[in-house]
């Protein structure tokens, strides 16, 4: 079992993703293509290998996903526009410093059109609502420098209604707290400078209790651990500045154990099939926990911290100090 991060293998794995057209799974995940590119690019950025994927090719692909009718991005050429894909497209363009390719007013119009009277956002014109989409809207508008066009109070009020007695947040009013929903809500509130509505001691307690004896974190009480919660729960804790409330060493070894030491990539748990989703969130978690030789991840935007800082968007979060050696 690997005891350190297999950076070259992961780089190779991510590079190989675009070339797996002989894999049925590749085609069955076309509806996630733009998200997958964002995940891959972010993972590469954190291991300081952003150059591993061709910039121009990537930008051209992003632009080929543009849905002119809706004025936003689909996940793949000829797929319908959706706020999930749209945020990914914006994040990629930001990281590649290519926002000039974007028809910003049109995208802003699309995003703002999705806000419902209750304050929550729909994912597209078909009206599915979820606090995930609120985060997408807030994050995207912020990255585009257009947050001032958002009705922040209305947006915040809906999130407040999703707050539960355990301090966490659910996907809509009445829904159970879930580490992923906690992150989207807390990060959206952080961007809107409304963290004052978070019950920090209770929520940070709930988040810290996501860590299991294996070192991995689960998403809800009495569930199995999963590498992707290293991002959802750890990023939330970083935003609340309580990242020290869990055992970093154990989480690091849990994430490292989920690596595929043959083909690269990280899985949800040791021995399972890897994917780019768990690869980026595993690396993101390692970065927040101070794993050596990684670049800082911004837990609010889930993008390289340097990029966010350069844009003047950095919020007041706290990761663990970067270590100089693998073992503490």
């Amino acid at each position: 079992m690997a005891t350190h991060l297999l950076v070259p293998l992961h780089v190779k794995y991510i590079q190989g993703l675009g070339e797996s057209k002989d894999d049925l799974a590749y085609h069955l995940t076309a509806h996630l293509r733009l998200n997958a590119i964002y995940w891959g690019l972010t993972a590469l950025s954190i291991v300081d290998r952003q150059d591993a994927l061709d910039r121009d090719e990537m930008i051209e692909f992003v632009m080929s996903c543009w849905d002119e009718d809706a004025g936003a991005f689909g996940a793949h050429p000829n797929h319908d526009a959706h706020i999930l894909a749209t945020l990914s497209a914006i994040q990629i363009l930001v990281m590649q410093d290519a926002l000039d390719r974007l028809d910003v007013p049109k995208v802003v119009k699309f995003i703002l059109s999705l806000q419902q009277p209750s304050g929550v956002f729909a994912g597209d014109s078909f009206g599915e609502i979820d606090t995930r989409f609120s985060y997408c809207a807030v994050s995207a508008l912020s990255l585009l420098g257009r947050l001032h066009e958002l009705d922040i109070e209305k947006t915040t009020n809906y999130i407040i209604q999703c707050r539960n007695f355990d301090g966490g947040f659910g996907s809509c009013v009445g829904a159970e707290s879930h580490a992923g929903q906690v992150w989207v809500c807390v990060a959206a509130l952080a961007i809107m400078d409304r963290l004052d509505v978070v019950d920090v001691p209770t929520l940070a307690w709930w988040l810290a209790e996501r860590q299991l004896p294996s070192g991995g974190l689960n998403g809800r009480p009495e569930k199995l651990p999963d590498v992707c919660y290293s991002h959802w729960a750890l990023s939330s804790l970083a935003i609340l500045k309580k990242l020290s409330w869990i055992d970093a060493d154990k989480t690091i070894s849990f994430i490292l154990s989920a690596q595929d030491s043959e083909g690269g990539g990280i899985a949800d748990r040791a021995g399972d099939m890897v994917d780019v989703f768990h690869t980026v969130f595993g690396i993101a978690g390692l970065s927040l926990l101070g794993y050596p030789d990684l670049l800082d991840l911004d837990p609010v935007y889930c993008m390289p911290a340097a990029t966010i800082e350069r844009m003047g968007l950095r919020k007041d979060w706290q990761a663990l100090e970067r270590r100089t050696t693998t073992m503490s």
Partner: peptide
Amino acid sequence: MHGVKRQTQQAIADRKQREKSKIE
């Protein structure tokens, strides 16, 4: 992928061969 057991490289190659017509 969530909860899907990892396969050996050989198994992956075999699966890809089987999947060819499905992909088409």
